[in-house]
């Protein structure tokens, strides 16, 4: 499949969301329970902590054909493992800047802090990420054409 054969209309962005078990995952749950609408474009992967996210995994998602990636963890200070998200914050800042420097479109990789009580915020973030990725179109840059 190349860029041109993908019709904008029928294409729906596929977004992989890595959500921390202790907060954002519960936040997503809350969004569901509270009936906040958000786009069905995300596929959730539950992770133990945002500090678990290695850039290898983020690139792996893009390599496997995801159009966008969202990583969400606990607010600074609220991490279940005390400082996982604070280490992650440095890693994400550096990594996002690096891949954008190398020409991956800004908006492919997204990061947020969402607590277990922020169901509405979760819906808002997913909407925003989906819109950004939709505007960018399909991600083909790290996908091998065979």
């Amino acid at each position: 499949m190349d860029k041109t054969s993908v019709q904008k209309k029928e294409w729906e962005p596929k977004i992989i969301a890595f959500l921390c078990n202790w907060c954002s995952y519960a936040g997503a749950d809350l969004a569901g329970v509270s009936r906040f609408q958000y786009p069905p474009n995300i596929r959730v992967v539950r992770v133990p902590c945002s500090g678990r996210m290695s850039p290898n995994i983020l690139l792996d998602a893009l390599k496997a054909g995801a159009d966008g990636v969202l990583v969400s963890g606990c607010h600074p200070g609220d991490c279940h493992y005390i400082s996982g998200n604070l280490f992650a914050r440095r890693r994400f800042a550096i990594f996002k800047s690096l891949i954008e420097f190398l020409g991956i479109e800004p908006g492919r990789l997204n990061f947020s802090w969402i607590s277990a009580a922020e169901g509405e915020q979760f819906a808002k973030v997913v909407k925003e990420v989906t819109e950004r990725v939709r505007a960018l179109g399909p991600a083909r840059r790290l996908v091998k054409e065979i």
Binding site: S115, A116, V125, E128
Partner: peptide
Amino acid sequence: DDPQNFLITEAVGQTSEAGEGVKP
């Protein structure tokens, strides 16, 4: 207080801490 302006929540705005959503 490391910089975190790369967060998408900086763009959509942050709801107040502990959220406005329905409490579980």
